[in-house]
């Protein structure tokens, strides 16, 4: 995979930054030939990852920092969302569709990330934080216009 473009961003763990990150990543993603539907899926997956970092990782402590790294390659886009929050005790359980530690939330965050992205990985350790890495393929014909 050839790296075409990349950015790294650090921002505070506040709710307003979910939309900020979503708009930023969607604008960056438009450098590749994604469909509008792909962009919508990327926006939801990214928002779920940032929301999890704020609500679960940092438990709504707004003084913490989330790091977002987005890489565009000829194959697609990789999104990495990293927090240094409380981490996840049991990743397999957290990824069950109806699992949520908060009755107001539906436990759908991981489901949307998994459904909408082609690759999805969570690394987490209690007390150390959580890193989510997701990859969305771009249509190969569109990414290689000579074909």
């Amino acid at each position: 995979m050839k790296l075409i473009n990349q950015f790294k961003l650090q921002f505070k763990s506040i709710a307003e930054n979910v939309a900020f990150a979503r708009v930023t990543v969607a604008a960056f993603a438009s450098q590749l030939d994604y469909t509008l539907n792909d962009l919508e899926e990327i926006k939801v997956a990214l928002s779920e990852a940032i929301t999890n970092a704020i609500v679960h990782g940092y438990e709504n402590d707004h003084q913490q920092i989330i790091e977002l790294t987005v890489s565009l390659t000829d194959a697609g886009m990789e999104i990495r969302v990293e927090d240094k929050g409380k981490g996840i005790e049991d990743i397999a359980r957290a990824m069950e569709p109806t699992y949520s530690t908060d009755p107001e939330r539906m436990g759908l965050g991981f489901v949307f990330m998994q459904s909408f992205m082609d690759e999805f990985q969570v690394d987490s350790a209690p007390g150390k934080g959580t890193t989510v890495v997701m990859f969305k393929k771009v249509n190969s014909a569109a990414a290689n216009p000579e074909h």
Binding site: R22, K43, V44, S47, E48, T51, D102, P103, E104, R105, M106, G107, L108, G109, F112
Partner: peptide, 13 residues
């Protein structure tokens, strides 16, 4: 124009 699991959660609650 946009909704994710947080918005759904408000409705479900």
């Amino acid at each position: 124009t946009y909704i994710d699991s947080t918005g759904l959660g408000v409705m479900l609650g």
